[in-house]
Design a protein around this nucleic acid. Structure first.
Lengths: 123, 123
DNA sequence: TATAGCAGTATACAAAAGGATACTGCTATA
DNA sequence: TATAGCAGTATCCTTTTGTATACTGCTATA
């Protein structure tokens, strides 16, 4: 396994790429919101739009395409009339729950300390 | 504990805020790079700048201020001559290692599947 | 036949994030 | 006394990200 230098620290190349991949998937204003609604169950475009308050169809379309490109979501088209489209998480997508939990956990543990630090920095 | 609606899903208000806090800390082009270099040991401004290839002093300064505001980093000024400034992770900051590990882990597990999905979406 | 819903796209714009470059005041060292 | 290093700041610009608004083609239902 080859190593690369990330911030002067030698570490496996894959680690750096893996980190970038993950960040790619979870950053973006609506990405985690979309993933969260889909964790429950697969949904249609208009369902998602209704559940996520404030999202425009343009952004929903864009984010869904990126999630699909990244293998987090699959778009299923049923050729009924009228056409039915459903968005569903892949296995990888479902595993994002663990990441979300970890992020929430850190946030909870950190919250009080952060508030204190912020108050101090303000003063 | 009060609940709020996140994407139409009822969940504790704190969870949503906690998630936002964490995302605030880890998003930004250089945030995790800075945290990673500091995980090793505390460092001076110019040390960090040397280790993170490509970062400008402007961005480093900006990101460090935000990390400090968020209680992830502490800025220590020793009034020697010339003045010595050191940046160090707080306890919360050190705990970000767990998040980074989780992100890398997901990325590694996901990588092969993602590549396949991408190839398919292209075709 | 008019209306509403589905699944989006198109165009234009505003805001946020990040980059390039130059500069500051300080001091230790050659 | 000139130079280099420390710890940044200031100004301007480009790129990326996200918003607003209108529109498309299709079809089921009233």
């Amino acid at each position: 396994m080859e190593n690369s230098y990330f911030n002067g620290i030698s570490c496996p190349n894959e680690y750096v790429l893996a980190l970038k991949d993950t960040l790619n998937v979870i950053t973006g204003k609506w990405k985690l919101a979309i993933v969260t609604t889909l964790l429950f169950e697969k949904k249609r475009f208009s369902d998602i739009q209704r559940m996520i308050v404030g999202i425009t169809p343009r952004m929903l379309s864009k984010e869904l395409k990126e999630l699909e490109m990244n293998g987090v979501v699959v778009r299923k088209v049923y050729d009924s009339t009228p056409v039915l489209v459903e968005y569903e998480l892949t296995d990888s997508g479902k595993k994002l729950k663990h990441i979300i939990d970890t992020l929430v956990q850190w946030g909870l543990e950190h919250r009080e300390q952060a508030i204190a630090a912020f108050a101090e920095a303000e003063a």
